[in-house]
Design a protein around this nucleic acid. Structure first.
Lengths: 149, 149
DNA sequence: AACAATTTAATTGTGCGCAATATTAAATTC
DNA sequence: GAATTTAATATTGCGCACAATTAAATTGTT
């Protein structure tokens, strides 16, 4: 019985997979955010919804989904939880009653100020320069563009 | 009532967030893999476990977790599902009965051959050169290193 | 007007991801 | 050698993601 390792097929090696680099790094990023988001009563996907609404309030569920690349099966329960914690309101459009508009409450709006220093916290925790972060971010977004065609 | 947009706080803009670039691109990557993995009866996290075991069979749950940065709360039910679909076996160590070893079945091993052309499929679907993919992957992994310190 | 097609959101069910806790077993200490 | 500590896995509960389906309302066509 030799101590046989499989012939190291480079194409299938875990550490060569871009998908795993993305997957594991995204999860690591979420873990880094978690304590700061906990302090603000948000989960990470909820934080993303807030980023969208802080940019432009009063969007429909599907408009939020377009921005975040998430569907209603993900967003509906998430938005309901956020409504129950008082961050936003869900209002059915009276003109087209299929639509549901999502609007920030005063609490949701004021949370913006405390969240402002969150990205810089992350920057200092990683020890990366802004230009490094911007460059990596742009490269990843360019790759995402190609994936989504 | 002016058509007031919020002052465009650049630090909180969704499209400037590296975390969202990672998050959305990772999810997009998983969606790209999905049809190919479906054809092989695997989910994406299950595919990652297979990559680990194809490199080195007979690891414990925690060893798999170290490679994938996932904990037992994620892996235990996932491995049980994979056991029930016949890809692997879970065997408690008789020497230290706290350990559970995970070993591939013949079916799990043979799946490796059909999976070999999966990464190249992804490459052709994205239209990226190998060097582009390698470079992006290395940059992301270097960033992950910093996050995990 | 009637009816088909389209749009939008909600619902249902499965599989993660992870924190917190429990359980079990081995190792260490007293 | 009994008790404590440590280590490894399992369990529970919550919150996503997403496919598939359903429901409801608008639009388009005849």
């Amino acid at each position: 019985m030799s101590d046989k390792k499989k012939p190291a097929n480079q194409t299938l090696r875990l550490d060569n997979q871009l998908c795993f680099a993305l997957y594991s790094t995204s999860l690591a990023m979420t873990k880094m955010y978690k304590p700061m988001l906990d302090a603000n009563g948000l989960t990470y996907p909820q934080y993303l919804v807030m980023l969208v609404l802080w940019e432009e309030d009063g969007l429909t569920v599907s408009q939020i989904g377009e921005r975040l690349f998430l569907d209603s099966g993900t967003l509906t329960p998430l938005l309901k939880r956020m409504e129950s914690t008082g961050l936003l309101l869900r209002l059915r459009d009276t003109e087209d009653e299929r639509r549901v508009y999502v609007g920030l409450t005063a609490a949701g709006n004021s949370l913006r100020r405390t969240a402002t220093d969150l990205p810089s916290c992350v920057q200092s925790l990683t020890g990366c320069s802004l230009s490094e972060i911007v460059s990596l971010s742009e490269n990843i977004k360019a790759f995402r563009q190609r994936l989504m065609r």
